[in-house]
Design a protein around this nucleic acid. Structure first.
Lengths: 204, 204, 204, 204
DNA sequence: GATGAATGAGCGTTCATTCAT
DNA sequence: AATGAATGAACGCTCATTCAT
């Protein structure tokens, strides 16, 4: 139908795969569906990607490449740790709300399965960088119950759960949690949480 | 081969399904694998369960039934909201650490897909009960950036992320996050987080 | 559910099998459906009948036994061949209209398949008896284009096609061909056809 | 194995399906058997046909398309109704004797079941056209016991029963009813039957 | 680059039948 | 006489992938 150029086909496949993996999950999505949605021949998927696994990993890599750029900017920035952590929340929220399929794909694959390695490869450095950021500003957080690692995991959990559980939350709020207004409220919640945690941490 | 009693076969199927769904996910698990692991004939699965979907829902229902009992005990308990919220964290942690597959299954299915409805049915009331518990003790949390709903989602995210991302976290800590020692540390972290959040909330 | 006596169960199975074989055909009917419709346990079918094939053959045998009684009465009757042939039409019509599933089952099984032998066993003697009846009254019909055998096949075809094609004919007439009025008209048609054929045959 | 052109495979599947459906019936024929007989991969059947039902309907549609061409030629022909009805018998006989599976498939499916609709769609117009042909030549046949509709059903029954009951008739005649000689005799029988019916009808 | 045809493997499911009670 | 549990075989169908063009 649509005659797309070479690059368009690859991009169309990636886009369709992203949408379907996000909505139904990797294993519940067939290459036939991806081909139909992207308007390309089924066999063409295997011309552009080694196999279905490689297609998922391409989707993931693409996301994490974009995300890495965002996070690097924060980490290499001058400024206080506090400011940078607040910035981190903002940027992560922005990224997730602009890439709604991303958190759902990661949600499923990080729970285990054949693509866990790829998730680990990308996510561990992010957690490490975040931990270093906290430790840089808060020396007390080297270990113990308020260690940087626990704090990072907690904030990561707070942030992404809003997106990964959005289909549950929408029944709790009777509103779309991903709508502009509700997202803004969530943003303020997260910043307040950070303030409430960091203040006593700094006082020690 | 083995002529086991009726309840044995059904239970064996449920157990095998739980393990495989937890490890690989619903769609990546075949009924043949479930049959092999549970040592029953493949057709027997469809004798005891209408279909594969119903098998997953049985697994889920079983978990949420157990969980509901636990949570009900907390909610109907006398005592301050603060005490009860701390208890909630303890019991939820206990439940998840004793049912490691549970959080992984929920993790994947709550991200969307054909079983989302079942997740919503169970999880929304839990969130609602939790929110009521917070509001009962902290009238300020009726709305706004520190609303009970946001607090519950945040703590839910903090708690479960330790389990659902355990395979990532183990590379961050170079330890098993689900080992006794690390779980204990996580528990203390969560209680401290709750203290840090509730204290200023009470002061208002 | 229903506690049926021993003979009731067997009869209930036969009745349900008759209905389902008639409506959907032997191969499209499962023993499970027969068990459900007859309100008995699935395994009980194999207690009363050797297997599914034997069940169909029981249904067929039952019909042909009833039918044989009817036809024998005609053949052994005194009276002219003409009168007896008219009577044969009446009785066959009566039998088919009272046993609507019968012609449909025969229709399908006589076209070929594993039960063809049983059909042949019952139907060949009927055709032979009919042929003898014609030849007894019309000596000219020993051979040739108006042989008794061709005449019997033709009238058999005329009679049963009204029943076996009833679901097609109902769209041709915009009426139920098996309703009382239309059946009566068909009866008169068949008698007229017989008159038109026999008259010139007698004149020779 | 064999890389045949596209049309070969499709045609081979249709041919094998026709033979097996004719011999054993739709429900008693498995896709595996069709694949084996046609020498193609089992999955290829579902590449060329949506499902097994669609395969049967393709077989049917193919037959009725051929048949429609034959019948149209008769109906649009000049000449007396009598001549055309005789021609109709000849052509229908020719068609059935050249397509022996056809009448057996129709025989079974017209008795009821999931493909009844397809049979009705094709057969009702044929009956209507035939009825119009009779009525055109014999105005008396508008209604009543010798109505065109009854006459058409009767002749249809006479014609097809020779084929659909051939496996029974062969035991009656001790000859192959579908052999050249016996078919020729049947043809003469049917023409005589038509003469015997039409003559008095014309005289009125 | 792109595609229609083709394939081996496996899917979830249902089947008729048997077994133990 | 009756039944819940169990089974091996087969069902129609879809899968990811490959091939030839």
């Amino acid at each position: 139908m649509k005659k797309t150029g070479a690059k368009n086909a690859r991009a169309a496949i990636l886009k369709a795969a992203d949408q379907l993996f996000g909505k139904w999950g990797f294993d519940a999505t067939s290459t036939r569906e991806i081909a139909e949605r992207s308007g390309v021949n089924k066999a063409l998927i295997h011309y552009h990607f080694k196999n279905k696994d490689a297609l998922l990993e391409s989707v993931l890599d693409q996301y994490y490449q974009k995300l890495a750029g965002v996070l690097l900017a924060v980490i290499n920035r001058p400024g206080s740790a506090e400011q940078n952590l607040h910035l981190l929340i903002d940027l992560y929220l922005d990224f997730l709300s602009e890439n709604l399929n991303f958190s759902r794909i990661v949600q499923r694959e990080s729970a285990g399965g054949k693509h866990l390695g790829r998730i680990q490869k990308h996510l561990v450095p992010i957690f490490q960088a975040g931990s270093r950021l906290v430790q840089g500003g808060y020396p007390e957080s080297k270990s113990g119950e308020l260690s940087a690692q626990h704090l990072i995991i907690s904030f990561y959990g707070m942030i992404v759960s809003w997106f990964t559980y959005s289909r549950v939350i929408e029944h709790l709020l009777d509103k779309d949690p991903l709508g502009k207004k509700e997202l803004e409220l969530r943003r303020r919640h997260l910043h307040r949480m950070l303030d409430l945690i960091l203040e006593p941490l700094a006082r020690r």
